[in-house]
Amino acid sequence: MTFQKTRSRKRYQNERRSIPIRALMPNAITTLALCSGLTAIRYAVSGEWENAVYAILIAAVLDTLDGRIARLLKGATRFGAELDSLSDVIAFGVAPAILIYLWTLQSWPRWGWLFALSHAVCCALRLARFNVNIDYLDQPHKSAGFLTGVPAPAGANFSLMPLYAWFVSGYDLFRMPLLVGLWISLSAFLMIADIPTFGWSVLRVRPKLRLGLLVMVAIGAAAFISAPWAVLSVFSVVYTVLLPFGILSYAKVMRGEEKTTPEEA
């Protein structure tokens, strides 16, 4: 009798230790994003700037997919959230910082490295803040469908805008260390800033505009294949222009909630 109870207990413990396949798939995608970020560093070290940017973009696509697949398969875990943050620090914090430094900031060694560090450190601080706030229910921006600050993938893309402009134009103006250093500092600040930014859940499309939007997406995809750096430059500029509108939209939502809240007696 005791032997059967021991076997049952061991079998129960083994079942509790086992992990369903659906929980591994999002983690596998996150691991691929981490590998893509590390590959970007490898290309940056060898001076292959375009390949380095492509690797960061691939990491951004994978980072977008892993969370959605985890929710779709109901395979979200705390381990996956921690792994995702570590991957994001490498792919969107360390990789862009090293890329920008080796591309131009190394010609200004003392201050250039500080500017590069600011991006990597602020990316890590943003993700640490995100992990700490996961269990907090009182998150005004999140409850309204907004993000707090610029997300790490968008921050990496924002920091690479001078590189995109240099790819398109070839002008060394966009490679000036002071200009690039100030720009990457701005991207670092936006990642940790306590400002509301648009999230996917807050964006809505009217039914009559749906087909037009799909056509625009198709045209954008074709344009990206033909002229990727020009498209990325336009996308980055549009995203930058939308930042103030995110703040105004959040303020409007808050005013609407205050009006619908019944007054205290």
Rank of each mutant, 00 (worst) to 15 (best):
M1C: 11
T2E: 15
T6E: 14
T6P: 13
P20C: 02
I21H: 13
A23Q: 14
N27A: 13
T30Y: 07
S36R: 08
T39P: 08
I41G: 00
Y43D: 08
V45L: 14
E50L: 13
L57G: 04
A59H: 02
A60Q: 01
A60H: 03
A60P: 11
V61I: 12
A70L: 02
L72I: 07
V89P: 07
A97Y: 00
R110N: 15
W113D: 06
F115K: 00
H119A: 01
A124I: 04
A124Y: 00
R129L: 06
R129W: 05
V132H: 06
Y136G: 13
Y136N: 15
D138G: 05
D138C: 05
K142G: 06
G145L: 08
A154T: 09
G155P: 04
S159F: 06
M161E: 03
L163H: 03
Y164K: 01
A165G: 15
S169D: 10
Y171S: 15
R175K: 14
R175P: 13
M176H: 12
G181I: 00
S187K: 02
L190K: 00
L190P: 10
M191G: 04
I192P: 04
D194M: 05
T197R: 02
S201Y: 07
V205N: 09
R206F: 06
L211W: 14
L214K: 11
V215E: 04
M216G: 09
P228T: 01
S233M: 12
S236A: 10
T240Y: 08
I247L: 07
I247E: 01
L248F: 14
A251T: 07
A251S: 15
K252V: 12
R255Q: 13
G256V: 08
G256Y: 01
E258H: 09
E263S: 13
A265G: 13
